[in-house]
């Protein structure tokens, strides 16, 4: 009986955490792998992994970085086994194109395409900072980098996006 109550309580805790952070998990996965179907798969695997190791999460206030770290590792595992070729934005698979197709206006579509084409090293810290609200210190910790390297990557990422958008505007 006690065990059953503990199971229900564990499941309730897990459901609440996942409900709150599911959107972040999916968006982070999607921008890491740039493929809608793979992102959904990575999130499913991440949820299983999180469920198995829920006891490792001591404080629910730390659930977001904990889950995003799991997503990052699951994504890496996926690509360890299946090294994808470089993405050519003019020749995307349906699942890759699906990420860009949802933009409701041209500006948003252009920006989304520009982010899509950023190198992984630039795109990931940008997602963590702008979308997840991470500080540069937290990004450095998550990506196992020096803070200086994070600052440089973020600056270069924005410079690239600025150039692309200015070029689009002048065409």
């Amino acid at each position: 009986m006690q065990s059953n109550t503990a199971d229900v309580s564990r499941r309730k805790r897990f459901d609440q955490i996942v409900a709150v952070y599911h959107q972040d998990m999916y968006r982070y996965a999607a921008w890491l792998c740039r493929d809608k179907a793979i992102a959904e798969d990575v999130v499913q695997e991440s949820m299983l992994r999180a469920w198995k190791s829920l006891e490792a999460l001591r404080d629910d206030a730390a659930a977001k970085p904990w889950l995003l770290t799991i997503v990052r590792r699951e994504n890496a595992r996926y690509f360890e086994r299946k090294r994808l070729e470089t993405v050519d934005i003019d020749n995307l698979t349906a699942s890759q194109a699906a990420l860009l197709a949802e933009a409701p206006d041209d500006d948003l579509r252009d920006m989304r395409a520009a982010i899509y084409e950023l190198e992984d090293d630039y795109r990931e810290p940008l997602v963590l900072q702008v979308m997840m609200g991470y500080s540069t210190n937290e990004i450095a910790e998550q990506m196992e980098l020096k803070q200086g390297a994070v600052l440089t990557r973020l600056h270069r990422a924005r410079a690239k996006l600025r150039d692309v958008m200015q070029q689009q505007a002048s065409e």
Binding site: A30, E102, A114, I115
Partner: peptide, 8 residues
Amino acid sequence: QIGRALAL
């Protein structure tokens, strides 16, 4: 703009 674009 980046924030809007990232919000898939």
